[in-house]
C-alpha cells in the first residue's frame, strides 16, 4: 500500500499539470498582493464602508494578516478547481490512458488502490494549501508587516490583537485543508465514473458552484437546505477569526466565538470525506473494468 502510495505521488509530481496549479495559485496571490500593495488603502476604505464614516480606524490595517484573510476569502472559492484538476483525474485519467486495467491486474487490492490514490491526491491538496499558506500568509507578513486584524462581518466588526492571530491561521488552514479534502474526495469519487477527466472536473465544479449559490443566497427556501450542503460548512474557517467578549465587551484573547460551529462543520466535512472515499472503494470493488 505504501509502495502504491509512493508511486501515485511519483505520478502526480511527474506530470506538468500539477505544477500548473501551483503556478496558477502563485499568479493569483501575487496579483492580489500587488493590488493591495498599490491600492490597499482604497480597498480598506471600501471594505470599511459605512464604518469608516463614523469611526476613525488607525493603524496598519492593510497588514499581512489582513491580506492573507482577503486572499483566503477569495481563493478558497477557486482552489477547488485546481484540486479537481488532479483529483478528478486520479481514476478517470488512468482509464483514459489505458493504465487502469494494467494497474488493477497487478497484485494489489482495489481497496488499497483507492486508498493509495486518495492519499496521494490528499498530499497534493495539502501541498497546494501549504503553498497558499506560504505565499498568502508568510509572504504577505513579510511584505505588509503584521498588526491587529480588523474584519467586518455582517452584524459586527472584529478586531483581533496581533499576538492572537497566528494560531488562528494555523487553525484556519487546518480547517481549509478539511474543506479542500472534501472537494478532493468529491472529485475523486466522480472520477471513477468517467473515462476522461473533463467530465469529473466539470461535474465537481458544477456541484460546488450550484451548492455555493444555494449556500450564499439568503432565500428562505434555500436556508432550509443550507445545513445539508458541504459548501456551507467549507467556509467555517472564518470562525477562527471571531472572538468572544466579556461582560464589558472586551474581546478575550485566545477565544473563538463559535467553536461549536467549527467542530460541527469539521465533523460534517469529515463525514463527507469518509463517505465519498467509502463509496469510491465500494463502487470500484464492484466495478467491471471495461476501459
Amino acid at each position: 500500500m505504501y509502495n502504491l502510495f509512493k508511486l501515485e505521488l511519483y505520478k502526480i509530481f511527474k506530470r506538468p499539470r500539477t505544477y500548473l496549479s501551483f503556478a496558477a495559485i502563485t499568479a493569483l496571490i501575487v496579483i492580489i498582493q500587488i493590488g493591495l500593495l498599490k491600492d490597499g488603502k482604497e480597498y480598506i476604505s471600501f471594505v470599511l464602508a459605512d464604518l469608516g464614516n463614523s469611526f476613525e480606524i488607525n493603524g496598519n490595517l492593510c497588514n499581512g494578516y489582513f491580506v492573507c484573510f482577503c486572499i483566503l476569502q477569495l481563493l478558497l472559492i477557486h482552489v477547488p478547481l485546481l484540486i479537481a484538476l488532479i483529483a478528478a483525474d486520479m481514476i478517470s485519467g488512468e482509464a483514459n490512458m489505458g493504465t487502469l486495467r494494467l494497474l488493477l491486474s497487478k497484485p494489489i487490492t482495489r481497496t488499497e488502490f483507492v486508498l493509495a490514490k486518495f492519499a496521494a491526491a490528499s498530499v497534493y491538496t495539502l501541498l497546494l494549501l501549504i503553498w497558499v499558506a506560504i505565499l498568502a500568509l508568510f509572504v504577505s507578513m513579510a511584505i505588509f508587516g503584521t498588526d491587529d486584524i480588523f474584519l467586518v462581518k455582517n452584524n459586527y466588526a472584529v478586531q483581533i490583537a496581533k499576538d492572537d492571530i497566528f494560531w488562528r491561521y494555523i487553525g484556519a488552514f487546518f480547517f481549509a485543508a478539511l474543506a479542500m479534502l472534501t472537494v478532493a474526495a468529491l472529485a475523486f469519487f466522480l472520477s471513477q465514473f468517467a473515462e476522461n477527466s473533463i467530465g469529473p472536473i466539470v461535474a465537481t465544479m458544477s456541484i460546488i458552484i450550484v451548492f455555493t449559490i444555494f449556500s450564499t443566497m439568503s432565500i428562505p427556501i434555500f436556508n432550509k437546505i443550507k445545513p445539508y450542503m458541504f459548501t456551507t460548512h467549507m467556509v467555517a474557517w472564518k470562525e477562527f477569526f471571531d472572538v468572544k467578549v466579556n461582560a464589558d465587551n472586551e474581546s478575550i484573547v485566545g477565544t473563538i466565538q463559535r467553536p461549536d460551529k467549527i467542530i460541527n462543520s469539521a465533523l460534517i466535512l469529515i463525514a463527507h470525506i469518509v463517505g465519498f472515499v467509502g463509496i469510491s472503494v465500494y463502487s470500484l470493488k464492484k466495478k467491471d473494468i471495461l476501459s
Binding site: N3, K14, P16, T99
Partner: peptide, 23 residues
C-alpha cells in the same frame, strides 16, 4: 490488454520501472 497508452509524461524506462515496482 489491448492498446495501452501508458503514462505519456513518463519515459519508457520510468513507465517500466513503475509497473515493475507494482508487480
Amino acid at each position: 490488454i489491448e492498446r495501452p497508452d501508458l503514462y505519456k509524461y513518463l519515459s519508457a524506462y520510468d513507465n517500466l520501472k513503475l509497473f515493475a515496482k507494482l508487480s
